[in-house]
Computed example of a mutant assay.
Amino acid sequence: MNPDNIRIVLVNTSHPGNIGAVARAMKNMGLSRLCLVAPRQFPDEQATWRAAGALDVLEQAMVCDTLEEAIADCQFVVGTSARERRIPWPLLDPRQCAGHIAAASSREQVAVLFGREDRGLTNEELKLCNLHLNIPSDSAYSSLNLAMAVQIVCYELRMLQVADDLPVSADQDWDAPFSTVANMERFYEHLEKTLVAIGFLDPQAPRQLMVRLRRLYSRVRLDEMELNILRGILTETAKHVPRDG
């Protein structure tokens, strides 16, 4: 994937604040090429204010009069669409589509088109696209803010870009080794002894207390440091238990 070959194209954006928010969304996800097709208000202080730390993306944005001009040098064009078409067109969700965008960007110029806030891209504009992208929002309220829609697509691209750097599991690079079975058994013995001593566990009618506590700690997966902390608490607790005689 080559982020420098991917441009986000906004068509006839009506609110300048949305342009600034899109610039910020792009920079969050490592994209920098913004193209504006006949924006209603730009430059504008609202765009600058909403861009926050992404002013460089805003200042470098290309402004074109027509969509054809904006994508003239592109080999692969994706259009975001919520429309149902009489003639079927390749339609993918952002995660599926991100793979196609990333692959194409390694050797081609790619454009991802976002339409007007109130009605999206026209049918004529969608005909210029190789693929259509649809964000499967809830049918009860399917309208997405422009910057949010851009953020979703850019996020999926970012995930592909950093895939090799992400941890393969939640346990990767943990700061202490996880406790061994033998040490956990010593902990359960210590726990049971302490619960009996403080009167919380009746050894004559234990019910399922220890089984449930085993299930609890097994689900959590304690590391050795956490286990030592818990055993230290048990030891200190036992010091406050009255001794017979």
Rank of each mutant, 00 (worst) to 15 (best):
N5V: 03
R7L: 00
R7G: 01
L10M: 09
A25C: 06
M26K: 07
K27R: 14
N28Q: 09
L34K: 07
L34M: 11
L36F: 06
A38H: 11
Q41P: 00
F42C: 05
P43M: 10
Q46E: 15
R50A: 14
A51C: 10
G53E: 13
A54Y: 08
L58C: 11
A61H: 07
E69W: 02
A70Q: 03
Q75E: 13
G79H: 01
S81K: 02
W89R: 14
P90C: 09
L91M: 15
D93R: 08
C97W: 00
G99P: 00
H100L: 13
S106V: 00
Q109C: 02
V112I: 15
L113E: 04
L113F: 09
D118N: 12
G120Q: 08
L121S: 02
L126E: 12
L126V: 11
C129Q: 02
N130L: 00
S137T: 15
S137G: 13
Y141D: 10
E156G: 00
L160N: 03
L166A: 10
P167W: 07
D171C: 05
D171T: 14
D171F: 15
Q172S: 12
P177T: 12
F178Y: 15
F178A: 08
T180Q: 08
R186G: 11
R186C: 09
Y188D: 12
T194D: 03
L195M: 14
A197N: 06
G199H: 07
D202I: 06
A205K: 13
L213I: 10
L222P: 07
L222R: 09
R231G: 05
H240K: 11
V241E: 05
R243V: 15
